[in-house]
Simulated assay, not measured.
Amino acid sequence: MKQRIKLLLLLSISLILITTIVTEPKNKIPENIKSEVDIALHHFPELEGISIEFKFKKNIKKSVMLAQPTWSGLLKPKNKRSYKILISEKFKISGAEFKTLDVPRDVLIGWIGHELGHVMDYQQRSNLNLIGFGIRYVLLKEFVKKAERAADSFAVSRGMSEYILKTKRFILNHSKIDEVYKARIKQYYLSPDEIMEMVKEQENSSLL
């Protein structure tokens, strides 16, 4: 009798979990950025079915946005992984404070596209490699450069060059943004000229 009750209880819990997994939406997107996220996601059909949660935070150190795998996702196969893209509500650089939602729409789409480029990079790595990625990103500046340029490259190769360029120009041409932060962007990310060169190469290869 006790075993039968335990079995029924186990079955009930299993059904609840299955129902939750099936009915829960793959992506969790705040309503106030849904249209921008949808535009960016449209450029990454490979990420369809991958669970990505977009979440606002009061502040993210040294970043406006941050893409990272969930801990539970690291225990699953690639096609079952889940990710979070954290978005700072505000960003402050050398006394100039901006609400992230107040930046031009295309700039916001470009920022989101860059983070989705990180997710694309993560999806090509094994779980063990992804853990090593996190360690190297924290410890090695040269690896940061490699990772950020890879994310830019993924976004550009998926047709987001105009959005990425607008994001770069917003940062590099904004008079109130500190030169130290601009130098970081120049050091670790693709430059506008490199992005344009990538676009030309894509156009030339498509003509062959």
Rank of each mutant, 00 (worst) to 15 (best):
I87W: 07
L128K: 12
E97T: 15
E53L: 01
F98A: 06
V64P: 00
V107G: 05
L116D: 11
R105H: 14
K58S: 14
G113E: 09
I50Y: 01
H118F: 10
L101F: 00
N79T: 09
R105E: 15
W71I: 13
F91G: 11
F56M: 10
G117C: 08
W111G: 10
E48V: 08
H114F: 09
N129D: 15
V64Y: 04
N129V: 09
E115H: 04
L128Y: 02
T70G: 01
H118L: 13
L86C: 00
V103D: 01
K99A: 15
K62Q: 13
M65A: 15
E97R: 06
N127H: 02
I52Q: 08
I93Q: 08
N127R: 09
N129Q: 15
S72Q: 10
L66N: 13
R81A: 07
I131C: 00
S72H: 04
S88V: 02
I85D: 11
E53R: 10
Q68H: 01
I52T: 10
V64N: 05
N79R: 07
Q123A: 05
E115N: 07
N129A: 15
L108H: 05
D121F: 08
G117N: 09
N127E: 03
W111C: 06
S82Y: 01
L101Q: 14
S51C: 03
D106S: 14
K90Y: 15
L86K: 11
K55S: 15
E48A: 11
L47D: 02
D102Q: 12
K84F: 09
A96V: 05
K90L: 03
R81P: 11
R105C: 06
V107M: 05
E97C: 04
G73I: 11
L116R: 05
I52R: 03
G95F: 06
Q124L: 10
V103A: 12
K90H: 14
N129H: 03
K80A: 12
F98W: 12
G95S: 12
Q68Y: 03
S72E: 14
V119R: 02
L128I: 13
G110C: 02
D121E: 14
M65T: 14
G49H: 07
E53I: 07
K76V: 00
I131R: 07
K58I: 05
N79H: 12
G110T: 06
I52Y: 08
I52S: 12
L66V: 05
G117W: 04
Y122M: 15
K57H: 13
G113Q: 07
Q124N: 15
S94F: 07
D121R: 02
I85L: 10
L75C: 02
Q124D: 14
I50Q: 06
I109N: 03
L75Y: 08
E53H: 08
L130M: 14
Q68I: 11
P77N: 05
F54G: 09
I112M: 02
I60R: 06
I112C: 09
M65G: 14
K57I: 00
K80R: 10
G95Q: 08
L86Q: 12
D106P: 00
G73L: 09
A67H: 00
S82F: 01
Q68C: 05
S51L: 03
Q68N: 08
S94D: 15
S82R: 04
Y83A: 07
L130I: 05
G113I: 04
A67K: 02
T100L: 04
L128C: 00
Q124F: 09
D102G: 08
K90Q: 15
N127F: 01
E115S: 04
M65W: 00
K61W: 05
F54T: 09
